[in-house]
Each structure stands twice: as structure tokens, then as C-alpha cells.
């Protein structure tokens, strides 16, 4: 196959039946075809019988087209949306445990503040920071903390959601009482 396009990262949202084994079907599909998953996160949706996976996959147009079609082909997959070129919001959370010597504690806190990261654990020699944001922001934060000596990093993988329409309410989903916690998470970090 002639690959006209350069490989790039795609964010793909996949709605699946919330059944056992679905995750391994998706993961197996990617490994069997030699596609690389950069990150994957799974969670329940408003409808508890449906889970939503957010996949970040790198590939050219051809690879992504095949990957999406193959995902569709899985019997338990209900819907596949490539959010990459749609208007959407992406977030990832990271926990960072960083050396906190007396000499750089203030610097770390200042940096955390700028990035709206929270300190969730403090010891005499380290901080654990929690930060949420898109990839660029988290990368920048990590780069700034690196000189202080990062001990460990844990990332959740990306989640993504399409932005709402500018004018009218979106088709489909009947209005329900929003799950405030989830919604706040997104609203809180809109930038």
C-alpha cells in the first residue's frame, strides 16, 4: 500500500459492550496487526452496559483507516470515532514523585502552582504532584521538574471528549442529570 501521509498521533474513542474480554479483543487486534497503542484508557459511560475506550495510536492515514475499520469489525464494538480532526478536549493525569530537597522545595511548589498541579503527598525529602492537562502541558511540567530529580512518574493515558455544539443541544442523548463529579473534572481545567 502506498502511504501518502506522514504518521501522526490519532485519538480514537471506542464505545464497546461492557463485557468481559473486550479489552483483550481490542489490545489483541492492535498487536496482531502490528499497530502501536501509545495509550489506552477505559471507563464506564452514562449507560453502564457500555464502556468507552480512548486510544492513542500513531500511524499514517492508511494504518488509521484500517485500525478503525478493524475496530468496527469487532463484534462488541458499538461505535468508533476518530476525534483527531474534530474539535475535542483531551486530558491526561499524571502523578509525579519528585525529590524535594530544602533548596528546591519552593521552586517545585511555584512550578506546581503555575501548572495548577496539586501536592498530594509530602515527606521531608519528596513531593507527589498531581497534574491534569493535555499532553503538551504535562510534558512541559515534567521537563521543568526533571532537574530536581524525578523519582517516578505514573500517567493515566489520555481521555478525550468531543466539544459541545456552539448553538443547539447535540442530537441523541436525552438530557439527564449530569454526573457532577465527572463534569467538574472537565470544566475545571478548560483552558
Amino acid at each position: 500500500m502506498q502511504n501518502g501521509n506522514e504518521p501522526r498521533k490519532h485519538t480514537i474513542a471506542v464505545l464497546v459492550e461492557n463485557k468481559f474480554g473486550v479489552l483483550s479483543r481490542v489490545a489483541g487486534l492492535f498487536s496482531a496487526r502490528g499497530y502501536n497503542i501509545e495509550s489506552l484508557s477505559v471507563g464506564e459511560t452514562l449507560d453502564p452496559s457500555v464502556s468507552r475506550m480512548t486510544l492513542v495510536v500513531r500511524g499514517d492515514e492508511f494504518v488509521i483507516e484500517q485500525a478503525t475499520k478493524q475496530l468496527h469489525k469487532l463484534i462488541d464494538v458499538i461505535k468508533v470515532t476518530d476525534l483527531t480532526d474534530e474539535s475535542h478536549v483531551e486530558r491526561e493525569m499524571v502523578l509525579i514523585r519528585v525529590n524535594a530537597e530544602p533548596s528546591n522545595r519552593a521552586e517545585i511548589l511555584r512550578t506546581a502552582d503555575i501548572f495548577r498541579a496539586r501536592v498530594v503527598d509530602v515527606t521531608p525529602v519528596s513531593f507527589v504532584l498531581e497534574a491534569t492537562g493535555d499532553e503538551g502541558k504535562l510534558e512541559a511540567l515534567i521537563e521543568l521538574l526533571r532537574p530536581m530529580g524525578i523519582q517516578e512518574i505514573v500517567r493515566t493515558g489520555k481521555v478525550a471528549i468531543a466539544r459541545g455544539p456552539k448553538t443547539r443541544v447535540r442530537r441523541g442523548e436525552p438530557p439527564r442529570k449530569p454526573r457532577t463529579v465527572d463534569d467538574l473534572k472537565v470544566v475545571g481545567f478548560a483552558d
Partner: peptide, 26 residues
Amino acid sequence: KVDAFAPNAEIVHIDIDPSSISKNIK
């Protein structure tokens, strides 16, 4: 060799499986 397959043809593909389409030949 896919590049040399029916090089001058306009190709129509009837298939029930979308993933068969444009998998090997555009």
C-alpha cells in the same frame, strides 16, 4: 506487486466487509 497491479484501471470494489476495501489496493 501492488504498485504494478492494474496500473491504469479505475477500480470498483463490492464487498460486505469495509475492512477489505482499500486494504491492499486503493
